[in-house]
Design a protein around this nucleic acid. Structure first.
Lengths: 137, 137
DNA sequence: TATAAAATCTATCAATTTGGTAGGGTTTTG
DNA sequence: CAAAACCCTACCAAATTGATAGATTTTATA
């Protein structure tokens, strides 16, 4: 399941993607528009900034705007930024690999291979869902 | 990600599936064989019993055994039993549906459609991974 | 240059979930 | 009848989650 953070991040990105080009959105605008608690959204926007999905302008008339095309922001990326690995176990993960400590055999646990298949399928599907694809209902 | 409980459940089922037909496995056997804390495993085996994947015989020389074919136990079922919904949000779930409360539009949230696509793909993949498929390495 | 508006930073917090452990019951045999 | 095993209920510490609060910095402009 997605965390609220990841869900809010997607909704915030959707909101930004729907604005006119060159429009800068204040946090409070996004919060109201996408129904997200404002203070919580602040943190999320900072995370999205660190992830280089958005950028911001400080001071009066500042706010946030997309710096990545809505066609290039995928669900997979947002999932990884906020919720981590897409695989079902760390030992089957590409980006968050960790060896399973409870596996007796050296490199392979009995589940790893199957979970890597799942990961590949899920990842492929998640890479196809972009912010742009979510907009056109 | 899978919880430890789901992971241990899969390993326990794998252990049971690898035993000779008609063999009954004591909890302690499974715990040692699959490297699972014994007391924790007890709870998991009870859950698997309630889920009708295994059955048990009490008393001396009792233990656990599969009552469902290893070809018919899928990752999807185990995920649902221990970790719940396969979908990324409740509003996109088949078995654990809940309406999203933070969505303004009545029935549809902006994410729902995309997440239902992911759910279908993931579910399909998870239904293809069975205990039997995990055994043949 | 003062001020208002906005992002940014740091801390805190309550509730829930997770990953167990403890300590017994209860049931079924040898 | 006692041992072996399942079965049940409670508890617990640590981590995570979903926020909230308050102070600080940055910027535009009157």
């Amino acid at each position: 399941m997605l965390s609220h953070k990841a869900k809010y991040a997607l909704k915030a990105l959707l909101y930004l993607a729907e604005q006119d080009e060159n429009h800068i959105s204040k946090t409070i605008e996004i919060a109201d528009g996408a129904n997200i608690p404002k203070k919580f959204l602040e943190q999320i926007l900072l995370d999205l900034k660190r992830g280089r999905f958005v950028s911001s302008k400080q001071g009066k008339f500042g706010g946030y705007y997309l710096i990545k095309s809505k066609n290039d922001i995928t669900l997979a990326e947002i999932h990884r930024l906020f919720d981590g690995a897409i695989a079902l176990l760390p030992c089957a993960s590409l980006n968050f690999y960790e060896r399973c400590l409870d596996c007796k055999t050296e490199e392979e646990c009995s589940l790893r291979h199957g979970l890597m298949i799942i990961r590949d399928e899920t990842l492929k599907a998640m890479q196809n869902i972009t912010i742009a694809s979510l907009i056109k209902k």
